[in-house]
Computed example of a mutant assay.
Amino acid sequence: MSAYAWLITGASSGQGTELALAALRAGHRVIATARSVAAAKSAVPEIERLGGTWIWLDVTDANAEVIVAEAVKKYGVNVLVNNAGYGLRGVLEDLSMSQIRAQMETNFFGALAVTKGAIPTFRSQCSGTIVMISSASGFSGTPSQSMYSASKFALEGASESLAEELAPFGVRVLVVELGAYRTPFQNAVAKPEDVMSEAYKGTVSDLTAQRITAGHGRQAGDPVKAAEAIVDVVTGAGKGKDLGNIFRLPLGRDAVSRAYTKMKLFSNDIENCKDLANSASFDVAWEGYPPL
């Protein structure tokens, strides 16, 4: 029996499906979740054929934490993957607060509920890996999808703290920053012409959204290779054998490029303002703060 049992949210399509299949093909056990198990079984019969198990889960459901806690115990889960989520297109000015809250409810609060369900068992057994499926837009903001970026930035911020909170218990947190991948993800994202108000037509937001839409189906990212990479990094196999200590895993050439660009801009800002920044402190401060 495999030492790895994966619980993967949003496994009925896209990257979630490919990750479930990659884990199963590597000989691991998989508990795949979907909001409609019947539809998922019909859409992806390979998961059951390879030995995977489907369970119902809506990450926004009030009982999501309890459902995950019970599943983790029942199936001996030791790898949790927060993959469920969707993209929201539109500039902040044009989005309603209900749209904004719904985006955060699924991509951020839903992931936290699922994670809280797994933590007690992972902590008590002093082992386990929590994988947060983020995005290049969760490290480098994207005009035309500010709230999608916000949901992933929030997830990454929480994950940074969570990684340190759980490290004493032998539990790992891994953030995966996906670039543009050839999955159905963009099928559910509104077209620019349907959401971009007149004031923003022709601006960087509109042009970025148009470029993303035009590139759908031709993205450079291979979801099968991405899934295999995640499995390798989690298990320390293949190309992931020396990556047991990494926290962020950017996947795709575009994700790597955007990360380097962001770090360069951030480094330049720090260098340019460091004298001013350091001057905004008391001359004598408490030596024990800030924490190292």
Rank of each mutant, 00 (worst) to 15 (best):
A62K: 14
W54C: 11
A71N: 01
S42H: 03
P45Y: 07
V59A: 09
I47Y: 00
T60P: 01
E46V: 13
G51V: 08
E70W: 02
R49F: 04
W56F: 15
V66M: 11
V44Q: 07
W54M: 08
A71K: 10
N63I: 06
D58W: 12
T60Y: 02
W56V: 14
L57S: 00
E48P: 13
L57A: 03
I55N: 07
A71M: 12
E48R: 08
A69I: 05
A62I: 03
E48D: 07
I47M: 04
V59M: 10
G52N: 08
V59I: 14
D58S: 14
V68W: 00
V44H: 04
D61R: 06
W56H: 13
D61I: 10
E65T: 15
V66E: 11
W54K: 09
A62M: 00
L57V: 02
A71H: 03
I47A: 06
I55W: 07
I47D: 04
V59D: 03
A43M: 09
P45I: 02
D61G: 14
V72T: 01
E46R: 13
T60D: 03
V68E: 02
W54P: 02
V59K: 11
A43G: 05
E46N: 13
L57D: 03
G52V: 07
A64N: 01
E65I: 10
E70S: 11
P45M: 06
G51T: 01
P45W: 08
W56C: 13
T60Q: 08
V66N: 09
V72Q: 00
V72S: 05
S42E: 08
G52Y: 06
I67Y: 02
V72G: 02
G52E: 01
L57I: 02
E65Y: 10
V59H: 03
E65A: 13
P45F: 03
V72R: 04
S42W: 02
D61A: 15
D58N: 13
V44K: 10
I47L: 12
A64I: 01
V66Y: 12
A62V: 04
T53R: 12
E46C: 06
V68D: 00
D61S: 15
I55M: 08
A62F: 01
I55Q: 07
A69W: 11
I47C: 04
L57Y: 07
E48W: 11
I55R: 15
N63K: 14
D58A: 15
D58R: 10
W54D: 07
V66F: 05
D61P: 13
D58G: 12
R49L: 02
T60K: 10
I67A: 12
R49A: 10
A71I: 11
T60S: 12
I67W: 05
T53N: 06
N63R: 15
R49Q: 15
E65M: 11
V68H: 00
R49P: 12
I67F: 05
P45R: 13
V59L: 11
N63G: 08
V72I: 05
A43C: 07
E70Y: 05
V72F: 00
V68S: 06
E70I: 00
G52M: 08
A43E: 00
G51I: 06
P45K: 09
A71E: 01
V68Y: 04
